[in-house]
Amino acid sequence: MKNIWIICILFLSLVLASWGFKGHRAVATIAQHHLTSNTAYVVSAYLNGQGMADVSTWADENRNQTTAPWHFLNLPPGLSHEAFAKAVAGSDNNVYNAILKAEAELKDNSLGNEQKNEALKYLIHLVGDAHQPMHISRKEDKGGNTIQVRFDNKGTNLHSLWDSKLIDHEGLSEADIAKNYDTATPAEIKQWQNDSPMEWIWESYQISSELYANVNPGQDIDEAYYQKYIPVIRKRIDQAGIRLAGELNKLFNNAQAPKITAQTPAATAVDLKDAAKFTGKTITVSGKIYSVKDIGSMVLANMGAAYPNQLLTLAIKGDAKAAATGLEGKTITVTGQVIDYKGKPEIIVADPGQLKF
């Protein structure tokens, strides 16, 4: 009986995977583009050089009997905002609590790097889950998994339709999805990042309530449905990415990167024009510094061309900042880990030894 229960839990965890591979990677990529420089550096350190997109599905791939419920929230239909908030506050072991738990662990200075690594991977994934409408839905149909429909001449279900089928119908590559969905205005970014996780899941609950009202078992999902709801999916993924960035910036914008005791990986010598291909890797690269800007907390030096056409930015801070004097016009060699900052490759230089003139 116990083995049957474990199998059922694992099966449920598979059918409740949200946004699919492309969607979760898009959320993480959008978030990566909206991190501050210091946040991007700290996040990269906690992830041991892995990119956010690369770990975005880790929480689905490592589900177990304990963590499976962290990915969704079951609530009865027809709740008012007040009743909804009360029901969420009175529940536990769901996506809302798991997000709060992950953030609390990332703030806890008593935890080690390995625990922070896991908490960060959960947060990256679960913020995406909270924005998938069918993850804030009804228990009786397993989040729409038992509501069978047809789409693109194939059988599927309401949950899977929203996980990936509507996204796949667009025919966009993973890179194009992240680029085309990342459209928030400055005003939207400010508003979305001011909203609490309770509001994120309330929005999903409202959407899933509409979806339930407008679907019939066996329904043939047509092009009109797709055209109506693909903008909703685009917005939810964009909101998830923007809000994930907001949460990470709150956590890490003023934080120090963890000290990694493991052996520093050997640097790979690369051509400057290829620096962007090595995000998360430690490289050695040479090039001319075309422009330099002191912003107080650090000096930004643009290699390969002047801003905004630089091939690589060096964020020189701490003990290394004094070495930035007179850099403009010089050809230098730098060694360090490449991070993605707003779609551009960057290396944080905190040790003068990273620079050679």
Results as ranks from 00 to 15, higher is better:
residue 201 I to S: 04
residue 202 W to G: 02
residue 203 E to F: 05
residue 203 E to S: 11
residue 205 Y to M: 07
residue 208 S to N: 08
residue 208 S to E: 06
residue 209 S to W: 07
residue 210 E to F: 11
residue 211 L to F: 13
residue 211 L to Y: 07
residue 215 V to W: 09
residue 216 N to S: 15
residue 219 Q to V: 10
residue 219 Q to G: 10
residue 220 D to E: 14
residue 220 D to A: 13
residue 220 D to S: 12
residue 221 I to S: 09
residue 221 I to Y: 05
residue 221 I to P: 04
residue 222 D to G: 06
residue 225 Y to H: 13
residue 225 Y to W: 14
residue 227 Q to H: 11
residue 228 K to E: 06
residue 228 K to F: 11
residue 228 K to C: 03
residue 230 I to Q: 12
residue 230 I to F: 10
residue 232 V to W: 04
residue 232 V to L: 10
residue 233 I to W: 01
residue 233 I to N: 03
residue 236 R to A: 11
residue 237 I to S: 01
residue 241 G to Q: 05
residue 241 G to R: 06
residue 241 G to D: 03
residue 242 I to H: 02
residue 242 I to G: 00
residue 242 I to L: 05
residue 243 R to K: 14
residue 243 R to T: 14
residue 243 R to H: 07
residue 244 L to E: 02
residue 245 A to T: 01
residue 246 G to M: 06
residue 247 E to W: 12
residue 247 E to N: 10
residue 247 E to K: 13
residue 248 L to G: 00
residue 248 L to T: 07
residue 250 K to P: 00
residue 250 K to E: 02
residue 250 K to C: 04
residue 251 L to H: 02
residue 253 N to M: 13
residue 254 N to V: 08
residue 256 Q to A: 15
residue 256 Q to N: 15
residue 257 A to L: 10
residue 260 I to T: 14
residue 261 T to V: 15
residue 261 T to G: 14
residue 262 A to Y: 14
residue 263 Q to K: 14
residue 265 P to H: 03
residue 265 P to V: 05
residue 266 A to D: 11
residue 266 A to V: 14
residue 266 A to E: 12
residue 267 A to N: 01
residue 268 T to F: 02
residue 268 T to V: 12
residue 269 A to W: 06
residue 269 A to C: 06
residue 270 V to P: 00
residue 272 L to W: 00
residue 273 K to M: 05
residue 274 D to N: 11
residue 274 D to W: 00
residue 276 A to W: 13
residue 277 K to L: 13
residue 277 K to M: 09
residue 278 F to N: 15
residue 281 K to W: 11
residue 281 K to T: 13
